[in-house]
Design a protein around this nucleic acid. Structure first.
Lengths: 159, 159
DNA sequence: CGACCGGACGCAGGATTTTTGCGCGTATTG
DNA sequence: CAATACGCGCAAAAATCCTGCGTCCGGTCG
């Protein structure tokens, strides 16, 4: 978990792996002009250094019966550290909540959530928001169309 | 790209792979009480059916020099379909923009973006927002602390 | 100025994993 | 009740990953 300074090759690898983590070491090696073991060692270092934090499969929400996406802006009654943390924990415990941002300005939290339908979402708001006395108010936006989703950060961008 | 009805095993696999896509087929097979080839065939079907849309590595933004996260709510002047699409395209072309939601209510778009620092973010807002005459106004929220990020959807949740 | 040290590389062999072909059992359909 | 289709497990083949080792480069210290 040390900083470990990334060079241009590391960044290239990060960009490639953020597009497709399934490629073979050989294929990556060819792209960055290195041998397969060298690529593997670099990737391992990036993992151990905490730069790469995981490797996951992307699932189309609609395909598993959760076609609706919501953006919820939540305002809390009091912004005490333990309450902030409490709410964050509760939100994280909800599988339908994909992302949870604690923000300045406009409200206190911004949530991104999935749901099967309106009823499903309403049940979520009840559990997470209505029943929590510390939630002052919240505003829900329904996402239309297929959103641009992603977690990729441009590693080659700067340093 | 057909619906292809998911059974309980498919859903278990999806949940497991959304946590860690790096596991061996053997290990997955043990967990769901199936043989490795059976697991592999299911995963392939899920890919071909469009349920699994990709496999990526997760990168810690701070580690590549992009420690700041922003939530931006954007209002457009006119909500004509081609303008909506135009803005969406412009946003998607910005590597720093991770997510872009077109929503009802509160503004028209919600963006999640990364940046190295305030100047970096300001440059982004200039390119994407100030210079676009179709952007009426926008509100920026800075994300504090480490947000809960993720793209995992609970496959076992419903059907 | 030269020797030492650390770090990263490529190569090659061995271990693991993935992939394919095949035969079997079960469920569905005519 | 027979025929077909689908999915499974097994076992071997193919591909990939992983490790150990020798080498090279760059910085440092005597």
């Amino acid at each position: 978990m040390k900083p470990a300074a990334l060079d241009a090759l590391d960044r290239r690898l990060l960009d490639l792996l953020q597009q497709d983590a399934g490629r073979s070491l050989e294929s990556l090696a060819g792209e960055v002009a290195l041998s397969a073991p060298a690529v593997q060692r670099r990737i391992r270092r990036l993992r151990e250094g905490g730069v790469i934090t995981g490797e996951v499969v992307l699932v189309e929400p609609a395909a598993v019966g959760l076609p609706m996406t919501f953006v919820v802006i939540v305002e809390l009654e009091r912004e005490r550290a333990d309450q902030i943390d409490g709410f964050r924990r509760k939100a994280a415990a909800e599988p339908l909540v994909q992302q949870c941002y604690y923000v300045t300005g406009e409200g206190d939290f911004v949530l991104i959530a999935q749901a099967r339908d309106m009823d499903d979402f309403e049940a979520l708001t009840r559990r997470l928001l209505f029943d929590d006395p510390n939630v002052r108010r919240f505003r829900t936006s329904v996402v239309m169309g297929k959103p641009l989703r992603g977690t990729a950060v441009p590693a080659g961008h700067a340093g």
